[in-house]
């Protein structure tokens, strides 16, 4: 049984699809242990048995990361104006947005704001994996640029927690251009001497990895996170070769020199605070 589920793609990662039944119990997709849900939640959504990091939504992430109640959100209601009028086979982009809004409770795939981590002020941007796979459209681009501007203006470090499937195809070249736009904004910020800490969580792929996520002064990854440019399924289909074990994980990226460190979720606050201290002049 275990083997059967293991060989399946879920279109996003090589690991078997996560089954999250609504209830008291849940199964860890990595070690297959049955876990008590509240115990996992108490453990920062990390499997107590194998320390598999579950995907978490933006609100939970913010709670875990910043000092209690310190997050002040900016531009919370920004929504896309659907630049292409995307429609395909009767389903419009707007309908899709509404459906995902209902499902995830978020209005867009990124939340930005000012916050404190262990008393140190930061500008925080967190991506929402449940909203259209956390894809980057014009709102994500705008919000990230706004966060960069805020950080530059207030001379605060910028912390971005990426979690995305890439550029949002419903917005066509507009979302492709967001890659250039965010990269340019981050580059300017870096030139002005700002500190940018990029945190990569499961999954960070496509246009987000190929733009701001990889441009951090310091890049931190969560253990086991899928990080890469092309999705594993795309690669497997293109080159028709079975992918090696552990391909495109955080550990793989560390080994190949694209990530500064891998940090367990419980230590993330500490590490970010320490980095900020080192970089403060």
């Amino acid at each position: 049984m275990a083997e059967q589920t293991k060989s399946k793609w879920n279109g996003f990662s090589l690991r078997p699809r996560k089954e999250m039944p609504e209830g008291l119990w849940m199964r860890c997709p990595k070690c297959e242990h049955m876990l008590y849900r509240s115990a996992v939640e108490k453990n920062l959504n990390v499997c107590p048995e194998c320390s598999h990091h579950f995907r978490i939504e933006a609100a939970t992430r913010i709670n875990y990361l910043v000092d209690e109640g310190s997050f002040q959100e900016t531009l919370p209601d920004m929504t896309t104006h659907d630049p292409l009028g995307f429609k395909f086979r009767g389903t419009t982009y707007k309908q899709r947005l509404k459906a995902d809004e209902k499902k995830s409770g978020a209005t867009e795939a990124m939340r930005i704001g000012k916050a404190f981590i262990m008393g140190r002020g930061i500008i925080l941007a967190v991506m929402e994996p449940n909203f259209l796979m956390g894809s980057m459209g014009c709102v994500v681009g705008e919000k990230l640029c706004a966060a960069v501007d805020m950080a530059a203006e207030q001379k605060l470090p910028l912390v971005v927690v990426s979690c995305s499937g890439g550029a949002r195809m419903h917005e066509g070249v507009v979302s492709l251009a967001q890659m250039a736009k965010t990269s340019a904004a981050v580059a300017r910020f870096g030139q002005a001497g700002g500190l940018f800490i990029s945190v990569l969580t499961d999954p960070t792929t496509g246009g987000v990895t190929a733009s701001f996520a990889m441009l951090g002064d310091c890049t931190i990854a969560e253990p086991g996170a899928l990080i890469g440019f092309a999705g594993p399924r795309t690669i497997a289909e293109t080159i028709k070769v079975e992918l090696p074990e552990g391909f495109q994980t955080a550990e793989f990226m560390l080994e190949h020199g694209f990530v500064d460190m891998i940090v367990h979720r419980k230590n993330l606050r500490n590490e970010i605070a320490r980095l900020i201290d080192y970089c403060q002049t």
């Binding site: 190929a210 080159i239 992918l243 090696p244 694209f258």
Partner: peptide
């Protein structure tokens, strides 16, 4: 190119670096 070697050598990082540097 989506390939194993391309990922190992940092396709995403290479493109990101180009975007950032070309804007400056």
């Amino acid at each position: 190119h989506p390939g194993i070697g391309a990922e190992e050598r940092g396709q995403a990082q290479a493109i990101a670096a180009n975007l950032a540097r070309m804007s400056l």
